[in-house]
Each structure stands twice: as structure tokens, then as C-alpha cells.
Design a protein around this nucleic acid. Structure first.
Length: 125
RNA sequence: GGAGUGGAUCAGGUGAUCGCCGGCAGGAGCAACCUGUCGGAGGAAAGUCCGAACUCCAGAGGGCAGGGUGCUGGGUAACACCCAGUGGGGGUGACCCUAAGGAAAGUGCCACAGAAACCAUACCGCCAGGCGUUCAGCCGAGUUCUCGGUUGAGUGCCUGGUAAGGGUGAAAUGGUGAGGUAAGAGCUCACCGGUGGGCCGGGUGACCGGUUCAUCGGGCAAACCCCACCCGGAGCAAGACCAAAUAGGAGGGUUGCGUGGCCCGCGCAGAAUCCCUCGGGUAGGUCGCUUGAGGAAGCCGGUAACGGUUUUCCCCAGAUGGAUGAUUACCACCCUGAUGAAGGGAACAGAAUUCGGCUUAUGAUCCACUCCUUUU
RNA sequence: UGGGGGAUCGUCUAGUGGCAGGACGACGGGUUCUGGCCCCGUUAACCGAGGUUCGAAUCCUCGUCCCCCAG
């Protein structure tokens, strides 16, 4: 079983990686977040979190980022194929907990995998 | 029991599992990775309101402009901060607040109202005199109707005296009482109040107390200003170094730049293969970067702020799309509940070059004190 | 992180110590067969809290929010 770590190379740090869009991107909406899966050439997935100042103060923004980072760390092995994942916090009030975030993250991964499978079955012919 | 004032302290704790950042050591060496070990948010880290250190501009030098501070004495690297006091104001009180120099250096403003808003004095009014006039009484002359004189009351104008009173206004030329006067007035007197000067005593000083003489016309300087003291500018995206990238594009120049308030001064470059500006390109890394006006404890000086000194004492975050987290167990606190079971809650808030302050946000506990009410 | 600027009716704006004004809008009325244009009237604001002053949108202090700039 692979260890559930989260190294620096698994984080999206370039502004261009946040902004660039591609037709193959898969966008999944959950109640509080918008999750964008971008196909990656790297053999592992990466995570980037967007929380603007309009969501709350610095404590709140740090909380959102830490909770989402933890959900990614625990479940990154399920993202197949590997992708750059960008999570955008919507305008929803209330302090997030880890369990809520993980549930949203898992549903997003599930829908992402579903779209990939249908594409794989449709396109080969 | 209620209301309140001042001060101090803490900012849940201990494990388990999985993670993140940094230092050190090791894996032969840089990077990466692994192992071990140590450390890892705050009282406000916040607002960026002051003051400094540090870096660059020249080792920041002179003048002007501009800005800041503004009772006294201390503290400090420095401050607009702190401590101790003085004066003034608020509160029944504990206690709190205080940008608190100068208005006879000058300028300006004080809307509306009001006679008048600061400098001459003056409008209404009051009083005296003069000239008219109306009415009444008395006297004289005369033919009844009239004329003259005089007294009193009223009224108009002029001259003079006066500032007691006058709707106003935020503010009106010391207040009250008596004398005095034609009417009045600090004109005089008694008490009270203010201002200025002299002298005496206390205090380092702001100032306080007493006495005596003179005098009694506002306010605003967080209006311009004057006086005293202080301040050069920019800011770690400061600044230094390494590497990568494009093509030699456009404009200007004798003085240009540093210079980002102005002038002087200073420094650098200075006839082109030169300099400046714009445009274009690059957007990576290393250092600065955490040991410092540092902390703790003891002793000494000081009312205190604070300072001095001693120690084999301690090292206490340094990220760079930005770490300091997640899950879970038990205990502690608060609330609901019945004391149990159970459930819920736990504020304000996240380092970014570093310090000293201020201000703002905010949970809990403790100590001392004040006022009111009730009981004894 | 550092530096700079701003906040006035619903919107855009003027006002630098003394009544807060204008335009557009909204509402009501008039005009018209009806609507528009036009005319008349009404409504409606000084970001918040303290201080200076007789008096503050204006001067001072603190706070809240918004915008801009950077090597």
C-alpha cells in the first residue's frame, strides 16, 4: 500500500497552471466547491486550491486549504488517470470540516472517473 | 444581591496514528530521497498610526519651502510612548479625561438675530437746557370774539450729559447690596470674583500659599501665524550576487544623471565604439533571513517608568501560490438536564526584514476598591 | 508585504466652517384619443464613533469598506 504523503512537487505553484484551460478538462460541481481535473503528463496527480479573500479572513482560508489538502492526501491514489486538480471554494458560508470536504472530494473523483470511462469506451472505434 | 472602577494572568491539556516546514547529524559528495533528533503562530501575529535599527541614494553638508511635537520633571536607541507630578474638566464615589505655549507682534473670522460682535462709540430710552406747540389754572390789558406774562402736564426739533435698562445672541464691556446724582456710572464703600506687577515663603520645575499695589472690553490659534524643539528621501518588492533570454528597435543629448520639493554644494560620466529615456526580452536561484537595544532567575539603586550587575543559565518559527495540519481517545471548563446518563458549546483571530509603542477586535479567571439595597 | 487615493439622495456629481444644490431615476398631477416628448410638484443623502468650535459634510483622532500602484 502506498504511503499517503503530500510532497511539494504534488502542489500546483505556477499561476499559468491555474489559469490555462483545455478542452479535455473535466469540471465537476459539488455543493461548496468547483473541481477541475486537467489531464497531466506527470505520473502523479497535483493539487491546487483557490480561496479568495471574499470567502473569509485568513484563518478561514487556511482552514479550507488544509482540509482540502488532507482530503487529497488520503485519496489521491483513486484519481485515475493522474491529473492536475484545482478546487475552487464557492461562496458558501460556514466553517468546513474534514468529513464534509472528503465527501465532496470523493464524489468529484467518482464523477471524474465515470466521464473518463465513457470516453474510453466511446472513442477507440 | 445589583451597578461600577482599577489592575494582573491565561488563551484548554495529555496520548495514539497519518502528514507538512526548517536546523543539525548520518547514508562517500551537490540536488533529490531515506533515517534519527530538535524546534515550529499571537496577545493582539491585525490596522499600518508613530518611533527606531538595517540597506541604497554621497559618510547626508548649507539655505528656503514643507511637516511634526507643544504644562513640568524624569525614563528610553528613539517616539506622538511610558512613569511621577501641576493646572483644568467630569463623576455621589472608587476613579477617569485632558493637542494644556502665545489673543497689548500682526492678519483674518464670529452667519442669522441684535443699537452694538471690538473700535469708534452709538440707536431707543433717561436727565438738563434752549426754541416751538397743545391743554388747564392764575395775573394784567382790552369792546364779547383777543393779546401778553407765569406755573403745571403733554408733545416736536436742536444742543449737551449718561451707559442703570432694552425683544436678540453661543458670547454683551466684572457680580450683589448701599451711598451718591438732574439722570447716571467702580464715582465711592462693603463682600465676592478676574487680570497684571512687586515682595516673602515652599518646590529642581510646572506651580502653590501669603501680602501689597494697580486695574477691570470677548471668543476662535485641531484659522493663517509667532515662539521653542525635532525631522534629508525612499523602503527588504530596500539592496547585493549568479544564471538564463533577445536584435542590436525608436527618440533625445551638451551638459546629462544621481536628485523623487526647490536652490546651492558634492559625486560619476563626458565627443562616441558615449550617455539618457522609451520600447522589447527574461520572470529562475542564492544571500539579506533571523543571536537580538534578546529572554530567564538572583542581587543592588530608584516612589515609579527604568537602570546597573552576576550566571559553565536559555537559543525560542523562518515559509516563498506561502509550512505550523487531520482523525481519534481520555481529562479539565461552560450551558441544557435532576447531582446521573446524554447532548451541545468554547471568543477575536494566522508570522512574512526585525524591534519599541499606540489603536482597534475579543473569551475566561483572579485580586483590590467604590456606590446603592436587604439582613444581622 | 509596502506605498498612494477615495466614500455626499437609488445612480452620477457640486459644495473647504453657518439653508446640503443640480442632473438622471421613482412617485403623483397636467397636456394627448393612447403612449412618448414636454410642464408642475413630491420623495430621497453627508461611511461609522469620539473630539475642537456657539455651530462640522468641511478641521483633528480612531475605525469600516472600496479602488489604484510596485522589483
Amino acid at each position: 500500500m502506498p504511503r499517503e504523503t503530500f510532497k511539494k512537487r504534488e502542489r500546483i505553484t505556477k499561476r499559468a497552471d491555474f489559469i490555462r484551460r483545455h478542452p479535455d478538462d473535466t469540471v465537476v460541481h459539488t455543493r461548496a466547491y468547483r473541481v477541475i481535473f486537467k489531464p497531466s503528463t506527470l505520473p502523479y496527480s497535483r493539487l491546487g486550491v483557490v480561496v479568495t479573500r471574499k470567502n473569509g479572513n485568513a484563518v478561514f482560508r487556511n482552514r479550507v486549504k488544509r482540509v482540502l489538502r488532507e482530503a487529497f492526501r488520503k485519496n489521491k491514489a483513486r484519481i485515475q488517470p493522474p491529473a492536475d486538480v484545482i478546487v475552487i471554494r464557492g461562496k458558501l458560508s460556514g466553517v468546513p470540516t474534514f468529513h464534509e470536504a472528503e465527501e465532496s472530494f470523493l464524489t468529484a473523483i467518482h464523477r471524474y472517473a465515470a466521464t473518463k470511462n465513457t470516453k474510453d469506451t466511446d472513442t477507440p472505434a
